[in-house]
Design a protein around this nucleic acid. Structure first.
Length: 390
DNA sequence: CGACTTTGACCGGCGC
DNA sequence: GCGCCGGTCAAAGTCG
């Protein structure tokens, strides 16, 4: 756009007759325009950052509402089909831009409401993690107690580890007991079932999608069922965090999808860019815990993607397939949500991913946004650009 | 030098 | 009881 304007100012036929002062004036004008565009870009960045914050606040709120609805329905008649009302309102498999903008407006309104209880919401946000922590988030005091309780147990086990450091077997036993205590502590864990797992299948070139957390690799194995190696990571944001994830390539070529399996609950505050995935996976885990066959509430957290619920090998598992966008491309003709529009990078080293034709101008947010949030921001940004051109 | 990755060994669960 | 297999550990190596 600016380039065209600049080109239009050049008059080769003049043969360099144009006065030097005129050129300087036009150069200054162009610089001013560039500066103006830059300022607008900054404003857009700020706006998107605010929307992202509001969006995450709403997710916390919705998660709590879903759970409270479920508890209420269980108390009333034991009906297990929870969250139907909410998911009918919030779940979307077909995307319409105008509806989406309306939704964002609602999000802003609701986030203002949630800001009125900011003390509580901050605690809720900081306590959210993968798995079932959301179950304990309703009462901040309880949550606080549980966290303290967990840490005290952990420190006890650390002492036990120190005492028994001479025996590796004893250390392992102590860790196993700790694991079992955590399972028992989670009263919602069904007997006979292992921890809920959340699988995310994502198309990317790097096995570590930027999910907002820091991970440390502690092992790699080649499973018999799949000749491709499976890598094991644990959360390194807290030395006591029990969350682990497995990453395995789905295809032979390097550019194929990766399957990431999350297991466990973070025992520390998460960065804001990690809360969206955490909220979605928490909702998924809650669905599995409830035994509900309705997965429509998940479409709120992952509105553009396929997901499925299953129980394999005693592990209740939610599989989110980011390789299969769940939307009607005809409704979004100018901004396809393909893998090329998503940003993936190593969470440990934050290596930049290769740029592509769909790269947006707010790179600072781009590198931090979680998958679905990013795709929604992309839509908003595109619409903003379109309206700006008109 | 600390943080992280690699990799062979080890352990426990599970099926036969 | 035995062997297979997935998951974890920890020493050694690598990197910034």
């Amino acid at each position: 756009m600016i380039k065209e304007e600049t080109d239009s100012c050049v008059h080769p036929s003049d043969g360099g007759v144009m006065a030097e002062s005129d050129k300087e004036v036009e150069l200054d004008a162009t610089k001013a325009k560039v500066e103006k565009v830059r300022e607008e870009n900054e404003k857009l960045k700020l706006l998107l950052s605010t929307i992202l914050t509001d969006y995450n606040s709403l997710q916390m709120h919705v998660s709590n509402v879903i759970r409270q609805q479920h508890e209420a329905s269980m108390e009333l008649d034991g009906n297990d089909d929870f969250g139907v009302d909410i998911s009918l309102r919030l779940g979307r498999s077909d995307v319409n831009i105008s509806k989406h903008v309306d939704e964002i407006d609602k999000i802003s309104l609701l986030s203002k409401i949630s800001d009125e209880n900011k003390d509580g919401s901050d605690k809720k946000r900081s306590a959210l993690g993968l798995g079932f922590r959301i179950q304990s988030c309703e009462d901040p005091d309880n949550d606080q107690d549980m966290k303290l309780d967990y840490r005290s147990k952990d420190s006890k086990n650390k002492n036990a580890d120190n005492k028994c450091a001479s025996s590796r077997k004893d250390v392992k036993t102590a860790r196993k007991e700790d694991h079992q205590e955590v399972l028992l502590e989670g009263h919602d864990q069904q007997p006979g079932l292992k921890k809920t797992r959340v699988c995310v299948k994502a198309p990317c070139e790097d096995p570590s999608i930027n999910d907002g957390c820091q991970w440390r690799k502690y092992g790699q194995k080649t499973a018999k069922a799949n000749p491709l190696p499976r890598a094991y990571y644990r959360c390194s944001m807290s030395s006591t965090c029990p969350v682990r994830k497995q990453v395995q390539r789905c295809g032979e070529d390097d550019t194929s999808a990766y399957m990431t399996t999350y297991e466990g609950t973070h025992d520390h505050p998460l960065p804001i860019e990690a809360t969206h995935m955490a909220a979605g996976t928490s909702a998924a885990a809650s669905l599995l815990q409830s035994g509900s066959s309705s997965s429509s509430s998940l479409s709120y957290f992952f509105p553009f993607h396929h997901f499925s619920l299953s129980t394999t090998n005693s592990h209740p598992t939610v599989t989110l397939d980011l390789t299969r966008p769940n939307y009607d491309p005809n409704q979004l003709p100018n901004y396809p949500l393909s893998s090329s529009s998503l940003s993936f990078s190593s969470s440990s080293s934050d290596r930049p991913s290769p740029s592509n034709s769909h790269t947006l101008s707010f790179s600072g947010l781009r590198s931090q946004a979680s998958l679905s949030t990013y795709s929604q921001m992309a839509r908003l940004s595109h619409q903003t650009k379109l309206s700006g051109q008109q």
